[in-house]
């Protein structure tokens, strides 16, 4: 699996499956599957947040604790906090603890899935998803990323240059001699860069994409209306606004994409494994919707008294299927 689209499809499939259920058994399976994917490809990464992903696991106890302190529902009382404590005073129940842990599991699975994708997709992969209508903004981000190593080197150079003048940062204001040359240097570089770009024919968007902008605004307004409708009537009626809203935005985007006049140089090839990944992602999303399945086991609600969650091997298997990149990644060159 090499194409960034494969990973994004996997992420979408993960989110959809995790979002669909609150059954802790399925959620634990999902977490296991994602950890399997994560461990299948050990990449060297100097990203501080990627390397310290273990803190994500703290989500479960934190969420459980929060919910237990907060919620007064549930029949199995563990102990009672004095009433004079604001907000948290009252009975702490096992059910509330469980419900919190369930939510923590959902969050854990999501964050883990994102951290796996972050590990696999480079900045350029992310930028390749930016629609061509946003070419200028994509260039801005590219420049920012390109100049990061240079800025870091610059900080070292400036720090040395100030040190040899006897500069020793003590208070906040003492950082001015470090910050100002960095900013000034960057602005001077920006001037050179802008000339260099102009000399290479970079210019403002030929046509302001006002039709797209208008459609997006209209779409957002429609979706917003759709969200308000359930307050007045039925949830389903909201869809009358939401679906056309989404359709409007998508159509406008596709239309302006063709007119943008930008041709991307770098286009990644979809390998056979990537096609397989896309296919499997669709399967993961669609499998639980199969008509012959009983979807009741997806719902799990601990209140008022804790019960054992139900388990359907079809859904369990569906969750395990999330682990597919672990097996595709090993043969990434096919």
């Amino acid at each position: 699996m090499r194409h960034p689209l494969g990973w994004v499809a996997w992420l979408a499939a993960c989110s959809a499956s995790v979002w669909r259920t609150r059954n802790p058994l399925y959620l634990i399976l999902a977490v296991l599957a994602i950890v399997l994917v994560r461990n299948s490809s050990k990449t060297e990464s100097d990203n501080p947040s990627v390397s310290s992903w273990r803190w994500i696991f703290a989500m479960v106890p934190i969420s459980a604790l929060f919910n237990a302190l907060w919620t007064r529902v549930g029949d199995t009382r563990l102990f009672v906090l004095p009433d004079w404590l604001p907000l948290v005073g009252g009975a702490i129940t096992l059910e509330a603890l469980t419900y919190g842990a369930q939510n923590g599991l959902v969050l854990l699975a999501l964050l883990l899935a994102f951290s796996v994708v972050n590990q696999h997709l480079s900045i350029h992969d992310w930028i390749s998803f930016v629609p061509r209508v946003f070419h200028q903004l994509a260039v801005v981000v590219t420049i920012a990323v390109t100049y990061v190593p240079l800025s870091i080197r610059e900080i070292h150079v400036i720090r040395d240059a100030q040190t040899i003048r006897g500069h020793q940062p003590r208070g906040a204001r003492d950082w001015v001699p470090l910050f100002v040359p960095l900013l000034t240097g960057a602005l001077e570089r920006a001037l050179t860069l802008s000339e260099s770009m102009a000399a290479r024919g970079f210019a403002a968007p030929v046509k302001p994409s006002w039709s797209l902008q208008g459609s997006v605004i209209a779409g957002a307004a429609l979706i917003c209306l759709g969200g308000l409708t359930p307050m007045l009537s039925n949830q389903i009626h909201g869809l009358i606004f939401i679906l056309p809203g989404i359709a409007l935005v998508v159509i406008a985007l596709l239309f302006s994409e063709r007119r943008s006049g930008v041709v991307r140089y770098e286009v990644q090839h979809l390998w056979r494994m990537d096609m397989l990944a896309l296919f499997l992602s669709v399967v993961v999303v669609l499998l639980p919707m199969a008509p012959w399945l009983d979807s009741r086991s997806l719902v799990y609600y601990p209140y008022p008294v804790l019960t054992a969650p139900a388990f359907d091997p079809w859904f369990g298997g569906g969750m395990m299927l999330i682990a597919f990149p672990a097996f595709l990644a090993k043969r990434s060159h096919i």
Partner: peptide, 8 residues
């Protein structure tokens, strides 16, 4: 674009 890029 250049100005935003380097500030970013």
């Amino acid at each position: 674009v250049a100005l935003l890029g380097v500030l970013l």
